[in-house]
Design a protein around this nucleic acid. Structure first.
Length: 810
DNA sequence: TGCTTACCACTTTTT
DNA sequence: GTGGTAAGCA
């Protein structure tokens, strides 16, 4: 007899959590939460259908109804961001529910329940990425005398592969290896460069573990196969013998130990395992989940959406999700209890119809989806507000400059002006207004990539939007990944000034052996930028150092007029935070804060490995060494582009800036207004852009899958679809994610080339969404879709295909 | 219309 | 480095 029945639990949640006060779960959601621990629950959840809500409530249900101790429940997700989101929901709803239940039990004088609730610590629920939890499992599993291996990340792992494996036996320039790698890596500029070879070998090593590849069988296929297999084996052996693990080895180790009956500290008490984003699970992870359940008898819940599987590069195998029913039966011998969540609470009815149409209208894609996949339906809430049901908008221009200008004007009208009126055929008018207190943060630009410049230095759309928004409307964009840290003007000036301080005239810098010339050039460019900036005599003048120029001079002389002694040890971090005084952008602008944090983090990390702890010594014989160390460990990595910005350090981005992000980053997010770049790069029908627009061949990632398919347990499942089909599937899913993000408004933008040849637009008169600036409005672009439906005519000429006719949704 | 030649544009994501 | 596309020309 449970302390709380499911209905009592639901009542407590409703009373405790405001968002459930009026609206409890819909029948399908309720079905998913109320299902008993066994059999496993298989939740297929379309976008915006409340998947995280259901998962969080199911965790709480296990606690309050099934009476599983919180520390016996494990919930995993795919990214750290998603993990923290899930955790915060479990905690906030859980604690509120606990309070509510406690109040009721006290009122009823139910002493056992009161006691039970008082001892309940919801904080003990285990949440995180599988890798994070795996690290804990290993740590908890330590046997006497055993050393717990250290987990290393990409940069360091590649370095070890380079030093200890690739350069052995002349592999770095072995022609057999090069030919073999080239056979499934066609990317520009090929695999001839060492960096590229290293990258390919490293990701292949991951692939071997993720896919459970029989490497011995693979290696006998040829000379190149053999060398590649040797490299992978030696790399893994090197890590293992040095007590190191990369993420793939970590997961492999978990599976090995589970199979050997170890990890009892984790497995024994485990009563529930909940897996989010199951569509992005790889084979190795799947085996871990099954084995964990087998060893513990834990209740399993998996949630996901095959249509949003966009992590193939990480070994994600959507077939694992799509065939869950059979695979679970084969592995554990049970059939799951299926639940479909289809009611979409996020988007307007038109948007739901639009992305439904996008995902379901291509016949060849349908067999890649979960069998009998049901379409989403818009929540009834939207039906009450027909004037909010704004058509899908399109903005297509002949060049990106005009496109950027018009996007900025549109954003300005909405967020700084009086809104926009959209007239569609038939005379209906829609008015677009910002929300009360609405700001640029309500909108987002989503694109496949957010780089601001092309390889040849030409600006891309995000860069032009950045300029226009700032110049015309004084609005900042937030696109910290759009530019390499080494070329951001303020970063260059700041680092240049620091260099001039610690190493005037580059004397020490130029004495560093084997530093690359390109790196020297970058460092000198920074110095020049810094010197010029100092000459401009920027404010403020510090109370005790006068001008920036004076500050630099003091440093150069290691002597300040108002100081009796120059400190014998000056931390680089302190120098950074002093120099930053002259760069208000690092405090004011959200991007600036991210950049500053990134530089500071690099210094802090360097201090872990540097002999001088990232400090500049003065008055000893080691002075020059400390400067040289600082340049090698801090400035050089930044100059070489090895330091990546991590925008996750921003708890939230101020609402007055316009965010630009990749579609991958936007997964799981929603915005009132979403602008999707469906082709601002596609000026011509260029073959090198086909992979991102309308693939004609398998891409490298699919060739790699095929490469190991015969030696992997999941090879056959994947090869149900050709490489070309998989290329289309990936693109379709990526843009499905993009198009299912908006709440109210979806605006597709691109160059005019992208809508030429669309049957609907050619036949429609005056309805082409290409005259925004002329009439101040845009037309309904519901049926004009991207890639499958509106490629340019020349593509069909070369394909010898007839364009499939677009179908109006609904 | 057919041929020659100049020009083009060449990811992304994460643990 | 490459494998087209699209413009230029007869």
């Amino acid at each position: 007899m449970p302390l709380l029945t499911y209905n009592q639990f639901g009542g407590c949640v409703q009373a405790a959590v405001p968002r459930f006060a009026q609206n409890w779960l819909n029948p399908q959601q309720n079905d998913a939460v109320s299902a008993p621990p066994a059999p496993p629950v298989f939740i297929v959840a379309g976008p915006g259908t409340g998947k995280t809500t259901v998962l969080a409530l199911r965790v709480l249900r296990h606690i309050f109804v099934d009476e599983f101790p919180p520390n016996s429940i494990m919930a995993t997700t795919f990214t750290r961001k998603a993990a923290s989101e899930l955790r915060s929901r479990i905690l906030s709803w859980g604690v509120a529910t606990q309070q509510q239940a406690l109040t009721q039990a006290q009122a009823n004088g139910d002493q056992p329940t009161v006691q039970w609730l008082q001892n309940l610590d919801i904080n003990q629920v285990q949440t995180g990425t599988l890798d994070a939890l795996a690290e804990e499992m290993i740590a908890n599993d330590r046997q006497p005398g055993e050393i717990t291996p250290t987990v290393i990340e990409g940069f360091m792992a590649k370095g070890l592969l380079r030093k200890n494996v690739m350069f052995l036996q002349g592999r770095h320039n072995n022609p057999d290896l090069e030919t073999h790698l080239g056979s499934f890596n066609r990317q520009f500029p090929g695999v001839s460069s060492f960096t590229s070879k290293l990258k390919v070998c490293h990701s292949f090593a991951d692939r071997i573990l993720h896919d459970g590849v029989n490497l011995n069988a693979y290696s006998t296929q040829g000379q190149g196969h053999q060398i590649l297999a040797d490299i992978v084996n030696e790399y893994h052996n090197y890590l293992i013998t040095h007590q190191l693990m990369d993420f793939a080895l970590l997961e492999q180790e978990i599976l090995n130990r589970l199979q050997a009956g170890r990890l009892q500290a984790t497995a024994q008490p485990l009563q529930a395992l909940l897996v989010d984003e199951f569509q992005d699970t790889n084979y190795l992870q799947e085996q871990i989940y099954y084995r964990l359940c087998q060893n513990s008898g834990a209740a399993l819940t998996v949630v996901g959406d095959d249509d949003q599987s966009i992590y193939r590069f990480r070994g994600a195998t959507v077939e694992i999700f799509a065939n869950f029913n059979n695979r679970l039966q084969a592995n554990i011998g049970i059939r799951p209890y299926p639940v479909n969540l289809i009611e979409n609470y996020r988007s307007s009815e038109r948007i739901v119809n639009f992305f439904n149409h996008f995902i379901s209208s291509e016949p060849t894609f349908q067999s890649a989806r979960v069998p009998n996949k049901q379409a989403c339906i818009a929540s009834a809430n939207w039906a009450t507000a027909p004037n909010q049901n704004i058509p899908i908008l399109g903005m297509f221009r002949t060049n990106i400059q005009t496109l950027a200008n018009d996007i900025c004007t549109f954003l300005h009208d909405i967020f700084q002006g009086n809104g926009r009126t959209i007239a569609v055929a038939g005379g209906t008018q829609f008015s677009i207004q910002r929300n009360p207190n609405g700001d640029f943060g309500d909108a987002v630009l989503l694109a496949g990539k957010v780089q601001e410049t092309k390889p040849d230095g030409q600006p891309r759309l995000p860069s032009l939007i950045r300029q226009r928004l700032m110049d015309d409307y004084g609005v900042d964009v937030f696109n910290p990944r759009g530019r390499d840290l080494a070329i951001i003007p303020e970063v260059m000036r700041c680092l240049g000034i620091m260099l001039e301080c610690i190493d005037p005239n580059a004397t020490i810098q130029n004495s560093i052996p084997r530093i690359r010339q390109t790196t020297i050039n970058t460092l000198n460019a920074w110095r020049n930028a810094g010197i010029q900036f100092a000459h401009s005599n920027p404010q403020p003048n510090l109370p005790n150092t006068n001008s920036l120029q004076q500050f630099i001079n003091n440093w150069a002389n290691r002597n300040a007029p108002n100081m009796t002694n120059w400190p014998s040890e000056w931390p680089l971090l302190e120098l950074l935070f002093t120099v930053v005084t002259w760069f208000p952008i690092f405090q004011i602008s959200p991007e600036g804060q991210v950049y500053l944090e990134t530089i500071a983090r690099t210094i802090a990390e360097a201090s872990q490995v540097s002999n001088y702890r990232s400090a500049i010594l003065s008055g000893t014989t080691y002075d020059n060494n400390s400067v040289r160390d600082a340049i090698r460990e801090v400035f050089e990595p930044i100059a070489e582009g090895e330091v990546e910005v991590d925008e996750e350090i921003m708890p939230y981005v101020p609402r007055a800036v316009f965010p630009i992000m990749t579609i991958h980053q936007a997964k799981g997010l929603e915005f009132p207004l979403v602008i999707v770049d469906v082709g601002s790069d596609f000026r011509t029908n260029h073959h090198t852009q086909r992979p991102f627009r309308y693939p004609q061949n398998s891409l490298d990632i699919h060739l790699t899958e095929d490469q190991v398919a015969n030696y992997s347990p999941v090879g056959l499942a994947r090869q149900q679809r050709t490489g070309l089909d998989r290329a289309f599937d990936d693109l379709t899913r990526q843009y499905f994610v993009a198009k299912s993000r908006p709440q109210n408004i979806l605006l597709l933008v691109g160059l005019t080339s992208q809508i030429e040849g669309c049957a609907l637009h050619e036949n429609a008169t005056g309805n082409i969404p290409n005259n925004w600036s002329a009439d101040g409005g845009a037309s309904d672009c519901d049926a004009c879709d991207f890639r499958r439906f509106c490629p340019s005519p020349a593509q069909y000429r070369t394909n010898g295909q007839t364009p499939p006719p677009p179908v109006a949704p609904g």
